[in-house]
Design a protein around this nucleic acid. Structure first.
Lengths: 118, 118
DNA sequence: GTCGTTCTCAACCAAATGGTTGACGACGAG
DNA sequence: CTCGTCGTCAACCATTTGGTTGAGAACGAC
């Protein structure tokens, strides 16, 4: 299968699944409980949960015929680490650009002075 | 079209596109430069860039017939905010669970004492 | 102007995705 | 044991996705 980062991003690229995650962050819930607010079949929600489970975002235990779903928060770190890494790089680059622009501004001012002097 | 959060997560749910983002974090690049390391057609890379652009992750300017691509770091915040929100909730719930378990442990100890007393 | 370079657009294709319905397994209640 | 409940599995369908190729637009160089 795809690597976990791919699976996690893909899992969260669906509004229904993000909503499920949002609700599971508040409280564990069964498949039926999760399905009620949506006007799709129970099977569709079950599929969504499988995607979330494969991504490592959700774990399920047994309780008689119920399958309580639990949000696994630690997987979020995987994403955060990836995002932060490149956000930092991009921002660092932005800072350097600012510095370069400031220097160019300074150089331009010097040139103006020289130009005015000549 | 879909909302931006959906588009951003979907855009990053592809290894090639994540790699493009990683490389753009270091330095701006043209479509051709970005395409060379991959063994797919230039058109395929162009499509990937369109997806990243639609997600707001990349902006493109003109330079003669070149189209330099630039990473737009601020969109990352959208994701980070979403992720952090639910990660926090989930962690807070985890803390409360710990507290409940600790209390139950205490109650169980009291019951044991009562049981021993009766 | 014509030519080479860079890139996008359009049409097409195979595979994956998100949905449906129907059948069935697993379980507690009666 | 039988019944209703909760959930999954399987087959199917429409749409999207990631890739291809071929044509062509936009631009600098000559």
């Amino acid at each position: 299968m795809a690597d976990q980062l791919t699976r996690v991003f893909a899992a969260l690229a669906d509004p229904t699944r993000r909503d499920i995650v949002a609700r599971l962050a508040v409280q564990d819930a069964t498949v039926g409980e999760l399905a009620t607010p949506y006007d799709v079949s129970l099977q569709a929600v079950s599929k969504h949960l499988k995607v979330l489970e494969d991504a490592g975002l959700v774990t399920r235990t047994r309780d008689a015929q119920r399958r309580p779903c639990h949000l696994e928060a630690n997987v979020f770190d995987l994403m955060t680490r990836w995002i932060e890494r490149y956000r930092r790089e991009a921002e660092a680059r932005y800072q350097r650009l600012d510095a370069v622009l400031a220097e160019m501004q300074g150089t331009a001012a010097s040139n103006d002075e020289q130009g005015a002097a000549s």
